[in-house]
Amino acid sequence: MNPKELIARRVAREFNDGDFVNLGIGIPTMVADYLPEGVSIFLHAENGFLGMGPAPAAGNEDWDIVNAGGQPSSILPGGASFDSLTSFGIIRGGHLKATVLGALEVDQEGNLANWMIPGKMVPGMGGAMDLVVGARQVIIAMEHTAKGRPKILKKCSLPLTAVKEADLIVTEMGVFDYRDGLTLIEIGPGVNLDDLKAVTPAEYKISPDLKTMAA
């Protein structure tokens, strides 16, 4: 299975039927395609609606409904539209079960950086800082390294998005949570502990109940 699909499938298992969730761009967006049988979630689009549906077919775009990336989207029956004040009230007010987003770096304290690289990339944080502070669960879904460079660190070096807000990290090499300090709770299929350690500078515990991520 390709790494991105493995990550998306694993994140999808975090959800219960009826959860309200915000999915970021990239791997997080794929999560909606891999929800377990019988689980249906409501997607929140921070630009102003709940109940986000699939992208419309070419020719059927309604440009009054775009996703947070500005691309044509749709609202499912039972969805609701609102303004940005309500949308960010939903976010900061702790009304979302989870936000799933990528990261450039995340560290053993739960700090994460995903919005700028000084001198190189200054796109702005958009809604990311509000989402990670406000959502009840912050799930980092990302490939384990960036072209071989580790991303799960002792301490983030890039400007932070938020302090101590990460709750779960899912990569193709493993799953970590922060309930009792950074802890490896699942390992990727075919990955051994030494290989993982070699690309994970953060200090982490290994759960006595360590499982293998289901492919």
Partner: peptide, 26 residues
């Protein structure tokens, strides 16, 4: 809050041609 989908904005910021303030969306 976000200018990443318009490369020209990033270019003007990096070149110092434009003042900018980036604010979290909420």
């Amino acid at each position: 809050t976000h200018v990443g989908l318009n490369q020209e904005t990033g270019r003007q910021i990096n070149a110092g041609e434009i003042e900018y303030e980036l604010i979290p969306q909420g």
